[in-house]
Write a protein that binds this DNA or RNA. Structure first.
Lengths: 149, 149
DNA sequence: TCAATTACTTGACTCAGTCTAGAAGTAGAT
DNA sequence: ATCTACTTCTAGACTGAGTCAAGTAATTGA
């Protein structure tokens, strides 16, 4: 993604400094929260309102430039890896989230579930478990709230 | 589940009027929120504090008597169908949630995902889509926040 | 360049859930 | 059956994440 401005325009999104900065922030640190994105953006362009961050994240995910993930017990998280349907694996202890490429395609699951008359458009899969470092050191809660990919 | 008191004791949970009522409320109306459970309980035993509802729901789900589901954009929901690993299908329009028996076992998915070194203990699947009534009548937002099974 | 539309800022507000201290209830031992 | 230690419940203040609304600033197409 060389040119964020162009990327925005191609998706029919008006270009502003805030939007470019948010898009870049999400790209730089995937699985970040609205708050961490705001902090990242402020580091780049100095200042942005909380509301603007929420607005921009909403627009970008609506237009398909980013994806919103909302795991139980955590604020919403965002990533710019879209279009490939991968899933997420989250450590119950430290909250670390990693990407998982879906081994089996989701298509069969979508049809399989469809006896209910619903028009299904997404199958969201989240794996819960314990990451290697938390498993090895159960005492240390390991830098809570980190979003390292 | 004839006798809730016995059911509680068998899981090592002390028996109180509030716990019995909460357990029954979750059984009667699956996919209810903490709030709707509280309302249901008040209908049965007259009064209960908000905190007690949260405490009881936490204890019961910890002890495996009920299951907590936390879909994006919705408060936590609870059901007493545990032990069979079924999934959920949620309407984006009206929020209606229905159970889906998992067509394919989850075991292969758990191992497939496990290149990351995580100890995976649960694969949570949520299907998102549009329910038949919302699909037929896109204008009416159809009784929002209902939790009919 | 200008006007119209769209986006951003600020601050109050909501909603779901948590914390704490004290009152009430439960259950095992006597 | 009663006592006592422990657990649970109540009440109300508090927090965190996100939304709403009104006014100001920026973008874009003519």
């Amino acid at each position: 993604m060389k040119d964020p401005a162009k990327h925005l325009r191609e998706h029919g999104v008006a270009v502003t400094a805030q939007r470019i900065a948010v898009l870049r922030a999400v790209g730089r640190s995937p699985h970040g929260t609205a708050d961490s994105v705001a902090a990242e953006v402020r580091r780049e362009i100095g200042t942005i309102s909380r509301q603007a961050v929420y607005n921009v994240l909403a627009v970008l995910s609506e237009k398909g430039l980013i994806r919103r993930i909302q795991p139980a017990g955590s604020p919403a998280r965002f990533e710019d890896r879209v279009g490939d349907n991968h899933h997420h694996l989250i450590c119950r202890v430290c909250g670390k989230m990693v990407d998982v490429d879906s081994a089996v395609g989701d298509a069969p699951r979508l049809t399989a579930a469809n006896d209910s008359g619903f028009e299904i458009d997404e199958a969201e899969v989240i794996y819960w478990g314990t990451c290697p470092s938390c498993f090895d050191a159960p005492s240390k809660p390991a830098s809570k709230d980190r979003d390292n990919a």
